[in-house]
């Protein structure tokens, strides 16, 4: 490991948090030796080190991406552990968690170790595999959660990501099962049955105008019947997922004249 001197960087935050702490500390020099911060403050000449002039620049802790898709193995045409690691490093991320929806999925200890080892071989950032909750991301049977946790990859985060765990009973078993090793489940909380197979846009005025099949989203708080009742806003009488049509301006036709469900 080399020694690096960062000159005049402004740490994003330093000191104990208080209600009126300013987000930035004082500019400082930072000497990094063997990957650890060795000295801070105003440092004089230090010989034989690489110097990075950070005057006017902000110093941030490394970011952690809890939801990265590295696509390897199986879709190396789209992304690889190496290309994803490089992109992460450029963006200031020092650790990335790789989602399990690869081909094959990360649903065994061996597959998790493959991702870990490949990440270490690339060596740019920490690549930590996320394990599948269910075998083959199929949502039916639990994957080998404990073996993944005990593997060299020490998997602690499990997710079926976009496949979602639809079966509430399977989800409950999984949550219960991982208690001994302190894992967490990251659920992609979405019900695919609500959208058509081609859904590719937020459902709303623009998906309507462009004729794109939309993902339904919780309606704006003003128009959701539930929210409306909480806020005491009168319901115009439409409970369908589409917005109530505007009252026809040139006719009496419309929601109030027999069109409402």
């Amino acid at each position: 490991m080399t020694t690096l001197l960062i000159r005049g960087a402004t740490p994003f935050w330093s000191g104990e948090p208080t209600a009126d702490t300013t987000v930035c500390g004082q500019a400082t020099d930072i000497l990094i030796r063997d990957g650890l911060i060795a000295e801070t403050g105003t440092l004089g000449d230090v010989r034989g080190v690489e110097v990075l002039d950070a005057d006017g620049l902000l110093l941030l802790p490394g970011f952690v991406d809890l939801h990265a898709h590295l696509r390897q193995p199986g879709r190396e045409d789209a992304e690889t552990i190496a290309s994803g690691s490089a992109a992460a490093a450029v963006g200031g991320f020092t650790a990335i968690l790789a989602m399990a929806n690869t081909t094959p999925p990360t649903d065994t200890a061996e597959n998790a170790e493959y991702v870990l080892d490949e990440g270490r071989r690339v060596g740019l950032v920490d690549v930590q595999p996320i394990g599948a909750v269910t075998k083959g991301l199929a949502g039916q049977e639990l994957a080998e959660l404990a073996l993944m946790a005990r593997s060299r990859a020490r998997v602690r985060v499990f997710s079926d990501d976009g496949h979602c765990v639809h079966d509430a009973r399977v989800m409950r078993r999984a949550l219960d099962y991982l208690r001994p090793f302190g894992g967490v489940i990251s659920q992609h909380a979405q019900d695919g049955d609500l959208a058509g197979p081609g859904a590719c846009a937020h459902e709303g005025e623009w998906s309507g105008r462009l004729g794109l099949p939309g993902w339904p989203t919780p309606r704006s708080r003003r128009s959701s019947p539930a929210m409306r009742s909480w806020r005491g806003i009168p319901d115009p009488g439409c409970t369908s997922p589409t917005s109530p049509p505007r009252r026809a301006s040139r006719s009496s036709a419309g929601p109030s004249s027999g069109g409402s469900p």
């Binding site: 709303g204 309507g208 040139r250």
Partner: peptide
């Protein structure tokens, strides 16, 4: 989807 806002913006009427 969104026909209420769309029709209001573009000036056409809708009915059921």
């Amino acid at each position: 989807a969104g026909i209420a806002a769309w029709s209001a913006a573009d000036g056409f009427a809708t009915s059921w």
